[in-house]
């Protein structure tokens, strides 16, 4: 695949108004995912970050505006064509009862298969490679139901990798995981990004993790949309965090990675005043 110009984005949304029924979550939003970036979308609850990701993944039809993939409106492609370019790790997926890790990961090959070509040698090789990359190869014959939360998330990630898409959308990939497994999943994502073949877009809750892993950060605020975007080191300041999250804080350099680290200010004890 030819390397695109770093300034262009194969995936972008233009003038997006996104709503559930009548409730408008985001309006007039322009967003572009830089190619080859690890983009992380952050913001407080209800700011519409997952909604934007859903729109980029063509899960939610915008009310106005459009999402473009490789220059064409995403809804003009056949769904399987999109699935060969853009993979999605949803917030929650259901593992069918009795399915093994190998079978689940193999389902990621669906967009590359046809009615009479359901399991080519390439399918087999790619599935094995995806399991190796995510470290679930040894679990191939285990039932998904029997795995721990961290293992399961790596299996789902392997399924998306088996799809062989250069763009990966991850909707809160670390939710429900303990801290060690959160880092494990994010390290895995960082590896994929550094290998240079993937553009990643993730929604994350933890601002410090976002600052550490993102090469491009998009900060969103409820009712406003995108407030800032760029390299975390350039845009994350105490003022921005206070503005977006309403959290008074200091921003220091992460002693491990030098990326911005948000430290909330000490709680000010509210003194009771008697009477009015």
């Amino acid at each position: 695949m030819p390397k695109a110009e770093p300034t262009t984005g194969r995936l972008r949304g233009s003038d997006l108004t996104l709503s559930y029924d009548e409730r408008v979550v985001v309006s007039g939003l322009d967003v572009e995912i830089p190619d080859g970036s690890f983009t992380v979308i952050v913001g407080p609850n209800a700011c519409g970050k997952s909604t934007v990701l859903k729109a980029l993944a063509r899960m939610l039809k915008p009310r106005t505006g459009a999402v473009y993939l490789d220059g064409e409106v995403i809804s003009s492609y056949r769904s399987k064509d999109v699935a060969r370019r853009l993979g999605l790790l949803p917030q929650t997926s259901i593992a069918p009862g009795g399915i093994t890790v190998g079978e689940l990961v193999a389902r990621g090959r669906y967009p590359h298969q046809r009615l009479l070509r359901q399991w080519s040698t390439e399918d087999e090789a790619v599935t094995a490679e995806a399991m190796r990359l995510t470290g679930v190869h040894d679990l191939a014959d285990r039932l998904v139901d029997e795995l721990s939360g961290g293992q399961r998330q790596r299996v789902w990630l392997a399924m998306v990798l088996a799809q062989q898409t250069s763009i990966l959308l991850l909707d809160e990939p670390t939710t429900f995981l303990d801290i060690a497994h959160q880092i494990e999943v994010l390290d895995l994502c960082a590896n994929l990004h550094e290998d240079g073949n993937h553009t990643l877009v993730a929604v994350l809750h933890d601002l410090n993790q976002a600052c550490r892993y993102a090469t491009h950060l998009i900060a969103m605020k409820p009712g406003v949309g995108v407030v800032a975007q760029g390299n975390p080191a350039d845009i994350v300041t105490a003022e921005l965090v206070e503005d977006v999250f309403g959290l008074p804080c200091r921003v220091i350099a992460d002693p491990e990675t030098e990326t911005p680290l948000i430290v909330p200010l000490r709680r000010q004890r509210v003194t009771q005043t008697s009477g009015a």
């Binding site: 993944a57 063509r58 999605l88 949803p90 917030q91 799809q163």
Partner: peptide, 21 residues
Amino acid sequence: VLGRRLALLEMGDSAATGLGV
């Protein structure tokens, strides 16, 4: 013919859509 897509739908609409269903 639809059976394969049915299997993917069991994983939820998001996962199925992601796979091109």
